[in-house]
Design a protein around this nucleic acid. Sequence first.
RNA 1: GCCGGGAUGAUGUAAUUGGUAAACAUGCAGCACUCAAAAUGCUGUGAUCGCAAGGUCGUGGGAGUUCAAGUCUCCCUCCCGGCACCA
Length: 981
Amino acid sequence: MPKEYNHLSIEKKWQKEWERKKTFQAKSKGKKYYSLMEFPYPSGDGLHTGHVRGYTAMDVISRKRRMEDFNVLFPIGWDAFGLPTENYAIKTGIQPAIVTKTNTDNFRKQFKGLGMSFDWSREINTTDPKYYKWTQWIFLQMFKNGLAYKKKMSINWCPKDKIGLANEEVVGGCCERCGTPVEKREKEQWMLAITKYADRLDKDLDLVDYLPQIKTQQRNWIGRSEGAEIDFFCQCQKDKIKVFTTRPDTLFGVTYIVLAPEHKMVGKLLEFLKNRQEVENYIKSVSTKSAIDRMDDKKEKTGVEMKGIRVINPANGELVPIFIADYVLADYGTGAVMAVPAHDDRDFEFAQKYNLPIREVIVPKVTDQTELPRADKKTVERNAIHAIIIDPKTKKILTLRWKKFPWTTFVTGGVEGGEDVIEAARREILEETGYSELKYIKTLGGPVECHFYAEHKDENRKAHFSTIVFELASEKRAIVTEDEKNKHEVAWMSWQELKSDKNLKCAEFFIWDDRFNNPVHAFCDEGVSINSGEFNGLSSEDVKKKITEFAGGKWVETFKLRDWIFSRQRYWGEPIPTVFCENCKKRISNFQFPISNKNSKSEFSEGELANPGWIAIPEKDLPLVLPKVKNYKPTDTGESPLADISSWVNTKCPQCGGKARRETDTMPNWAGSSWYYLRYADPKNSKKFADPKNLKYFTPVDWYNGGMEHTTLHLLYSRFWHKFLYDQKLVPTKEPYQKRTSHGMILAENGEKMSKSRGNVINPDDIVKMYGADTLRVYEMFMGPFDQAIAWDTNSISGSRRFLERVWRLQFKVARGTLANEKNKALATTETLLHKTIQKVTDDIETMHFNTAISAMMILVNEFEKAEKVSREQYEKLILLLSPFAPHIAEELWQVVGNKKSLSAQKWPKADPKKMKESEVSFVVQINGKVRAQMTVPAGQTQDEAVSLAQKMPDVDKWLSGKKIVKTIHIQDRLLNFVIV
RNA sequence: GCCGGGAUGAUGUAAUUGGUAAACAUGCAGCACUCAAAAUGCUGUGAUCGCAAGGUCGUGGGAGUUCAAGUCUCCCUCCCGGCACCA
């Protein structure tokens, strides 16, 4: 028996053993559990420390599940299409397929060296034609169902490399490889209509168990919002412009409307314009702007009026001008907005710049929380003013101190019939203070509606306050009536004093403070309608739908989500299995089939009718295999290298047999990963992407872990594909993943991102060689909270290694034969701790608190070390708890203590609640909340028992003597708190 | 700007959900073993006052609720992640 812990030989031995015995192959019977970690992109750099974190976590879960009697499917494969491999091929001329083979071989070796309990018999590779046959097949189903369509889109173009770039290849508006600023180029692209599923992608998040951040991030990305679509008719009454707004309550405040430069009405209206040239120039200048320029321009809005045409505001019949401006996006809502400068920051900024009218239609509504309106009192509505009077010499503000109430107020009063607010303010100032010579400075915006109970009048008030600012022109004062003098006296305060005055009686003061000290801006919150005809006085939420209806609009849902650009002008991806046929295009346009009518007998599919001339290749011809090429560089025109192979491009049309051109675009690397979890259920099937029976048994994935960076792309894309397959009755569940978690990144030791260019990469192979896979696994699970980003610390690894060595050495303490509890006192105390540890490790694994699970095992090991002897049962339970984290050493020790079978077939230990109870507890005595004494007492003391025990202690008596106990708080088995005076 | 997550010793972090702040680990210091080193073991390690017993302070800052706050409420500062003219 070797005395030293030799990780090299132990790990190799057990990896061979698992492989030989096929220990981790999923069966087809029993309670299934499908655990999955995102499959890796097999880059030339090999696995990095971040991979180890995520895969170890899911390996821990999977190993535990097996011991809990589940038939676990924990598969692995390669997401091998993609740019780094292609770029490497361009540089070296080595075929991507060969590079991929080398890289996956390396990854496989590394995974095995880490002891991952994958079912290797189900290994898949997205670049294998046997696999991508089905990626293409699913695409064809989408195409035939009208979910794939061609659209002219701008792509990122690098003028130096003369290639189209994927979004991922553009860094800060520049080409990732050469740093040249990227230009936009128009090109026809395949699109997938993910937006048709936007609603369900949002709502069905309710059906799954994802981390809350993941759900929120997906919801934000999908960006559902409700609002109104309202038509603005042109003067001519013929044309109309539909706008989308979430604030129809502000419709009466519309002073112009704005179209996106790309809006289809712009071209139509062009001929009626007085300034056609100007408008055309503007559109041109916008379209040539690069992405970076447009980002820069965010600071200032530009736009141009379409002179000569106006539209009618359906709410009040007013004619308002039309602008085009690039701050309005063509592909959100309807591509047109109604501008309400008084209540929208962007419209406000634009209106200021172009000197457009600003009309307030919503006023803020404030309810005084200290003087809430009373249900039993009548409510009096009135217009009122506050007057802010500044003494120019001292800059102080005039306020009134009330005599009967603890109030500080501005000069305040009602507006009487026939007065305007300024006149009313002057009158009130004179009456209440006697000042008569005042210089008007400004009015602080429109009124504010304030609800409160007016104690001095014993009635509820619904007041519309305006606030007027004056400067004292002279200190001359008229005589104030006795009546007024008795009510309050004048006090001058600085604005700061006013702000911090607790007696200030003005619930809406925060609004005046803002308006007094800041430049004029839009009020964008909801409130109460004014200047809105019959809707005046009603609150925003009440009138939103009413005004929509009144204006003939419709209540709708809108999403931020855009359709998915599915084309890449690249070589190393799945060929898109379609051809273009001029002849069929003509035939389709001659037939004029109604697209929506599925009953009309057509040789064409819905997708073909929607994309005239684009014909699906027959399913029997799949896979459409990527041909070998000599040059992997994209062509001069930005087409993929496939466009240069005429024997591949020129083909026969499967519909009419005539000449056709093959699609030369390939799929993005998100395609293969959108459905790979389904293939694992039946990876070798050549008739179907997976047999329904297998899908029914294994799916959905029970637990899916992956990077946070995939939340809005891969995760959303694969949910979309899954939902489509569900609609086609090809998968049994609505959602692909029941539970989704994310791991935090591992950063370099200096807290920066690990990257080759920074030279701070840690290679897991080195760690495995030096410390062992088990140590690396334990370290990565112990280093910190699983979901948090964390810096690598090579120093700390030795702690994990030491822990395993201690566990190793404990084997020499294990008692031979049975060890009765009575004979070893230490055994009884460790038994309690053991069962608590079992409970903690069991729970912590489920919540991914791996760090505290390991710390609990460390505590147990420390305790075992103190004991004279450890029983075999206790030691075995420790080994079982440890085995998901450090499987090799666990298997070895399991064997060492005398077991023949692999521990992976063992049952997960169960905590016995009876044994978890401590017989003695550490108890604390507090005086006024401060710990003054500690004692160890038998568990389960009553308050009286605890008090009498505590009072006997000198440390407690010292503090209690001569004092009166006013209150005693007792928390059983925890603490006693005496409150004394 | 908006949304989400944070801030605790020298460091990574923990705290039975409001009940002894710093468990576990790293680092550091001292001691033991050794000719020596490594490894290992033991002891100490928040700050501060004190010879000591012991006291006081202490979880980004400020207020509040409570017998009791790292934990709850309000305000502020800073850091990380995502989105960003989304009407």
